[in-house]
């Protein structure tokens, strides 16, 4: 479904992706974890060509999308992406956020687009919010609208870029449940997240990235509960930290140490 071959990307001297090989099978939910700056978000943004590669190749459904002359717009319609900051259009109601792209790009009649938009809003639990503007919705509701908006284009793959990181803790759950249901419906998903519970329960496979490389990958139980690599263990210790009291920790340039 999605295949990356030796993908490399630098911003100036900063090597963000240092030779990534990865493939995602149809219907698979791949969860990407790693510290901030490990290249996770850049990886997603490269897949739908929001970020050009330095080298390497990316295939979507067998078609190389990194070759010259590819129809970027048509490609992006096949790949839904949901962002950390929602990126809803502030001047449009929820329903119009959903229908804008199908009406303008695919010339869908408004009535037909709105029927589908109402279905999708109902699916993310927001049937009553169709005529609210983004600022009238909570962060969790905005993010669910953003998921529904991406689904309007009937994508074959969905990319999630830390979609709960900007949310208040009590709003994270509603978004994760929508994503879980989407995964159960058979959607192919690449999910960059810090939500380990989601990775464990919904992920088919977990990839741990560090320094622009894939350090470890495997089923969630292996990577999260029994990691082979020391770097994975260190990262998970820092994220989970549960066995320590704050009293035992000090902060250094590297972050938190015992």
């Amino acid at each position: 479904m999605v295949r990356l071959e030796d993908v490399r990307k630098s911003f100036g001297d900063n090597v963000v992706l240092n030779g990534i090989d990865l493939s995602v099978a149809p219907g698979e939910v791949l969860v990407v974890i790693g510290a901030s700056g490990s290249g996770k978000s850049t990886l997603l943004r490269c897949i739908n060509l929001l970020e050009p590669l330095d080298s390497g190749r990316i295939f979507i459904e067998g078609e190389e999308v990194t070759r010259k002359g590819v129809n970027v717009s048509a490609l992006r319609q096949r790949i839904g992406i949901v962002f950390q900051q929602f990126n809803l259009f502030p001047h449009l109601k929820a329903i119009d956020n959903l229908t804008l792209a199908t009406r303008r790009i695919r010339k869908a009649p408004r009535a037909q687009a709105e029927v589908r938009a109402h279905e999708l809003l109902a699916r993310v639990g927001l049937a009553e919010k169709a005529h609210q503007y983004p600022h009238q919705l909570s962060g969790g509701q905005q993010q669910r609208v953003a998921i529904a908006r991406a689904l309007m284009m009937e994508p074959h793959v969905m990319l999630f870029d830390e979609v709960t990181s900007a949310l208040d803790p009590e709003l994270v759950g509603e978004v994760l449940v929508v994503m879980r249901d989407l995964a159960r419906s058979g959607m192919t998903m690449l999910v960059v997240t810090h939500e380990m519970q989601f990775a464990r329960e919904v992920g088919d496979r977990v990839v741990f990235m560090d320094g622009g490389r894939i350090v470890e990958e495997g089923p969630p139980v292996e990577v999260l509960d029994n990691p082979r690599e020391e770097r994975t263990r260190r990262f998970l210790r820092r994220t989970l930290q549960l066995e320590h009291s704050l009293e035992e920790l000090t902060v250094t340039e590297e972050g938190v140490t015992e």
């Binding site: 717009s73 992006r76 839904g80 990126n87 259009f89 001047h91 303008r104 790009i105 284009m153």
Partner: peptide, 28 residues
């Protein structure tokens, strides 16, 4: 930028992104 990025990600081209997102928001 994130509003324009949102439009690009949905499949809008550069001109369509301007007409549908940058113009109505920036005009206001």
């Amino acid at each position: 930028w994130r509003f324009r990025e949102g439009a690009l990600a949905l499949g809008f081209g550069r001109v369509a992104t301007f007409l549908n997102v940058t113009l109505p928001i920036g005009g206001r």
